[in-house]
Simulated assay, not measured.
Amino acid sequence: MSTIEEIQAELRALTEQEDEINESLDALLQERGVLEDQLASLHKLMPNLGLIHNDAKQLTGMISFTSQLADNVSGKVRQLDLAKSRVLAASLRVEDVLDLKFCTEGVQTALHEESYEKAAALIHRFLSMDEAVLQLSEDAAEGSSLKQSFTTLHEAAAKLRSLTHSKFDSAVNSGDVASVERFFKIFPLLGIKEEGLTKFAKWQSAQTSTQIEV
Rank of each mutant, 00 (worst) to 15 (best):
K76M: 12
I123V: 15
L59I: 11
E105L: 00
L51I: 14
M62V: 09
A90Q: 13
E113Y: 00
G61Y: 01
E114V: 05
A70V: 15
F126P: 11
A132V: 14
Q79C: 04
L69A: 01
C103R: 01
V107Y: 04
R32V: 11
V107Q: 06
F65T: 12
S41K: 10
G61M: 00
S67F: 00
L100G: 06
H53S: 10
D81H: 04
E105M: 01
V77S: 05
L82I: 08
C103A: 10
M129W: 10
M129R: 07
Q68I: 09
E95S: 01
Y116P: 01
M62E: 14
L25N: 13
E95Q: 02
V87Y: 09
Q58T: 10
R93D: 15
A89P: 09
L28V: 12
V87T: 14
H124D: 11
Q30L: 14
M62T: 10
L127G: 05
V87S: 07
L39T: 15
N72T: 15
N54G: 07
G106A: 00
D96I: 02
S41H: 11
L82D: 14
E114M: 02
E117K: 04
F102M: 02
F126A: 08
D37G: 05
C103M: 06
M46R: 07
G106L: 00
L122P: 05
A89V: 03
L98N: 05
T104M: 04
